[in-house]
Structures are given as C-alpha cells and as structure tokens.
Design a protein around this nucleic acid. Sequence first.
DNA 1: GATCATGCAACAACGCTAGTTGCATGATCA
DNA 2: TGATCATGCAACTAGCGTTGTTGCATGATC
Lengths: 152, 152
Amino acid sequence: MRHDTRLSRMLHVLVHMDRHEGAATSETIAAMLGTNAVVVRRTMAGLRDQGYVRSEKGHGGGWILARPLGEITLLGIHNALGAPQLFSIGLAGDNPNCVIEQAVNASLAEAMHEAEAILLAKFGQVTLAALAEESSKRWAKPAHCSLAMEHS
Amino acid sequence: MRHDTRLSRMLHVLVHMDRHEGAATSETIAAMLGTNAVVVRRTMAGLRDQGYVRSEKGHGGGWILARPLGEITLLGIHNALGAPQLFSIGLAGDNPNCVIEQAVNASLAEAMHEAEAILLAKFGQVTLAALAEESSKRWAKPAHCSLAMEHS
DNA sequence: GATCATGCAACAACGCTAGTTGCATGATCA
DNA sequence: TGATCATGCAACTAGCGTTGTTGCATGATC
C-alpha cells in the first residue's frame, strides 16, 4: 500500500519558503521535490484556497507565504490538502445486514477514531514556527535543499 | 487512496467459522466476501502460519478454526496478515540531508507513532469472543451471510 | 510585444492490489 | 484403484488511482 507524502513534502516546502527571498516558482519547488511543476501547482492550489500561500504570475512570480509560520499548524495543512484518509486499513461493507460484520466494524472504527483524534490533536498543536526553530536549534546549520541554495 | 479491508473481512470470516459446522471451503468464503477463492487462500495462509486456522484437503475439507475465539485478538490477526501499514500518509525522503525535512518528519513520525501505539493497544485488548458476544447481545438475531446460511 | 509564470483540462504512464488461470498435491469416497 | 474435491503455488492479466506530461489560455513584468 503506497503512502501519501504530500503533507510531509508541503510542510518542508513551506518552511523553506519562509527563508526564501521573493517568490519560489513551481519549477524550483518541483526540482527540490524531484517531481513535476504541474503536480506542485495542483497541490499548492489547496493551500492557496485556504489562505496559506499566494501565487503571482509573470516575471518574479511564483509562490509566497501568506501567513507567518507561527500561524500554520500541521493540522491546517493537512486539511488544506483535502484532509485525506489517514488510515490505510478500512472497513468491509460486503454484508451490511450481517450483525457480525457490524460488530467487527464497530470495534475497528472505535479504535481508529480514537487514534485519529489523538493524531489530529497532535497535528493541531505543532506550528511550522516550532519546526523551523527545532531544526535550527538541533543542528545549527543551514538547510541544504535546492530551494535553499542561497543559504548554503 | 484505497484502503485495505482484509483485517475487517478476515475477522468477520473467523467469527462465522466458529458458528459453522465442519470446514468452510475457500469457495464458500469467497462467495460470502464477493471475491475469489485464490485470494481467500492467499490471505488465510498468513493466519494458518500463525496457528489461527487449519486447512484440510479433500472431501469435506476447507478451513477450520484452530483456536477458541477468546484467544484471538484483533492485533493477532493484524500481525498474521503481515502487519500492513496502518497509515496512508508517509514521510518524504527526497532530501535526507536537509535539517528541515528531518525536523518535519521527526514531528510527523512522533505523532504517528503515538497514534499507532494506541491503536495497536486497542486491537490487542479486543478478542473475537467479545465481538461474537457483542453481536449476539445487541441484535439477538442470527447473522445472515452466505457462510451462515444454515443459521438463518 | 516578448518573456515568464500560473491555471486548467485532457491524456499517458506507472505501480499496486485483486483477480484469474493452470497445474500439482493430497485426502476422501465409491 | 480411480474419480472427485479441495488446497498450494506460481505466473499472468486486469482494473484503479495517482503521478507525470502536454498543450493552450491568462495575466504580469520587463
């Protein structure tokens, strides 16, 4: 079962954007992530709709942070990406009339809801500012990704 | 992102097997799940290797529970299925040298590990006997899936 | 008006899981 | 003993969803 790394990647990008002079183009971000500019635009569109970033056209255009890192939580970005499925396991629905299936699913669902609530609560407590500070504190070295070339 | 319903389905099947006279063939189980007998064998193979079920060939053969429901937990079956990924979100690994990516991933991983621990702990506490009792208590009616035809 | 960059839609490619087929093995029954 | 039933296993096929790609339109800057 393949996993969705958009959340991790977008968080990474956003912190870099904060340190970045001017706008970052989709092309630049795509190169940093080893992916395609159109995919970047598709993904960033959700963040733009939620007011986390702005996009500007023309010379010197690209993507710009629209809020301070301190106002952006992991949960906010998760939701801006469409709040995708957190779990890769799901409930069977082949025999909805079967009381056994219902009991099995109810038990699984309860455990999953509890775990999900805890995960989302954690996500809601962490801001990108905290992550940025954490990274500079622990390693005291500039980041070196392609987006951050001017820092290295 | 599609989800893996094997755990839910196998739990369902196991409870039915407990109420079932004699062995249940892969074909019967497949019909009940709306799937294929080979897929059933593939999935049940893991449970057999862990001693949860036995398989017998020839006339009257099929699958038989090898342990009482009280000794089978959701966690046990989850592990017997190969302990597949629980989360559909994952960590990016494009820039392993980047301290920002490291900080982002560390934060996500911590939250996910915590949620996973809670989920697995829950799974470890629930036995199939509890599910079987729950289903008969709450509805006080026989289950009606194809595997359970003789009860309905 | 030339260039740069996003926006959007349609299409192609890829990877993964489920599903399928075919044959071998072994147990039961007549 | 031979026919039948059922699992075991391996290789192949199909379907689905996501990512990647292409082409063109829009708008901003130089």
